[in-house]
Amino acid sequence: MSAVRTPREVLLNRVAVVAVFVALFIMLAPIYWIASTSFKPRNLATTVPPTILFEPTVAPYVKTFVKRSQLRGPVEEEVYEAAPWWEQLVLDGGEKVVRSPSGEVKPSGYGQRFMNSLIVAVVSTIFAVSMGTLTAYGFSRFKVAGKDDWLFFILSTRMLPPVVVAIPMFLMYRVVGLNDTHLGLIILYTAFNLSFSVWIMKGFIDEIPREYEEAALVDGYTRMQAFFKIVLPEAMTGIAATAVFCFITAWNEYAFALIMTNRNAQTAPPFIPSQIGSGLPDWTVIAASTVLFLIPVAIFTFLLRNHLLRGMSFGAIRK
């Protein structure tokens, strides 16, 4: 851009700034709306016209985690007074907390699904990133016959539609008893993320000068030592970024989880929509469970901001 700015250019720039903020508002409005719904009392979630200003409550977040049933009549005063604050919030909404005969609060199932998501995503990420880093190093530093074909093969496994892979996997898992197990999902997500991790890690490792290792080899390191002591520390940023990408992919995955799990190992993505069920859905609870599910991804996106481009283009484009 030229140093001297014409009035026309200044005006254009102002228009652009306004347009960017309008676009930002439109892009973030849906996310704001779901977040605000998660703090509404149930009767304000589906009003006509929509309620924009309201007194926030955390009741939806309490309700997300406990099993509830509809109250038949008004609550007795002493029962209400004896209840802890979070139970009062549920009672305020016309529902009561379901307890086992021994008085323990029954969980809603969301907590368990959330944990399942966490276990499956973390373990599959560890596998995918560690195998991917080794393989990327192999492809980056050594001569491999038909290298480009192998790399294409690795990437093509990522591009398969999940349902296409799920049909035979479902049949095979049924034979070996891996349907609805954590291990079954971990294997699928590892396979899915492995190709991504090889491609993106190869980009990161290609950028580490070979001279570093060669100097180490001359100094008496073995190739293995050079890899672990020189290359890995240098590649740490790349490994962290790759891990976050793999985690987000596994965390968000829906189709495999829908097909391969139903109870024991079900993750949050198929569970959250199933809360709609029949009758009038409680959108505040759906919103609360959605927000809790989205928070980790939002945080990671922020941490990843400088690597998004590389990650999204499979390592092909870097700044």
Partner: peptide, 25 residues
């Protein structure tokens, strides 16, 4: 901030857009 939507779960995004699209509320 603009990049946030693409990082979210498609299933969950589809779900909450149903709320946004609801004909009455």
């Amino acid at each position: 901030l603009l990049l946030l939507p693409m990082m979210l779960s498609m299933a969950v995004v589809g779900l909450f857009w149903k709320l946004l699209y609801d004909p009455s509320f």
